[in-house]
Write a protein that binds this DNA or RNA. Sequence first.
DNA 1: ATTAAATGATACTATAATTGTATCAATTGT
DNA 2: ACAATTGATACAATTATAGTATCATTTAAT
Lengths: 132, 132
Amino acid sequence: MKLITRDTDYALRALCFISRSNAGKFSVTKLSKELGMPRPFLRKILQALNKQKILESTRGKVGGFILAKDPRKIFLTDIIRIFQGRLKLNECLLNKLICPDQRTCLLRKMLVKIERYVLKELDSITIASLLK
Amino acid sequence: MKLITRDTDYALRALCFISRSNAGKFSVTKLSKELGMPRPFLRKILQALNKQKILESTRGKVGGFILAKDPRKIFLTDIIRIFQGRLKLNECLLNKLICPDQRTCLLRKMLVKIERYVLKELDSITIASLLK
DNA sequence: ATTAAATGATACTATAATTGTATCAATTGT
DNA sequence: ACAATTGATACAATTATAGTATCATTTAAT
């Protein structure tokens, strides 16, 4: 039962690192050394962030990645969605419910309530807010 | 990112079913038919509940399982712990943190806050509370 | 006693998700 | 031309989840 998987974690740390050092551009090689993450894995992650317009890439020699957005506008929920798909805590219970009648299933109601809270909280977290 | 896995779900539904029908004892065969769950899997689940003193079993012909506890005293967190282990939403981030300094890592603080809320809510749910 | 139907214990298998690696093509500064 | 980069994508390894199978033991009924 984890909220955040490894790729989300790596993505967050890379984004924070890039944000902090306003140097601008970093290659995967540099970042993976700096952050101690497996290079090919980090590369796949940065490519995904690029596709989703969170990062912007330049190719060729001296290429690399820079932030494409204001860190105040990069939300934790964005990143989670990219690497973990749609945010849902209680998928398995929405079909096969304890109560035959979905409208009255108490467990579902309670889980939905919890989910709403979690999403609201996660949505209040941005890269900027993680930089202290 | 799911809060509740299949075995927890099955366990909850079986416990609710047994609680509702105050008939008392049910064999796995009966329950699996009644609830539409794979028999061997449900069996493993009921055996685990028995080991944890949530259910009580009688062996031999006409054997089966009955509740060992008041449904008001069977908590969702108990069941989750049995099938999904220790309740922790943010394991992966407790070691490899975004911030080098754990004491000041904001993400960790936020996730811990979320976790506390979720645990508190889950802990307010019992089998009895799911019976309407 | 024997048998049928149940659980206890436990090993095994299958599937899916997570966590990576590898490779070939295209781009670009020197 | 070359070296260092990213783009795209296929492949592999590991782990978690979901489920099956089997042999031993217990017990009620015949």
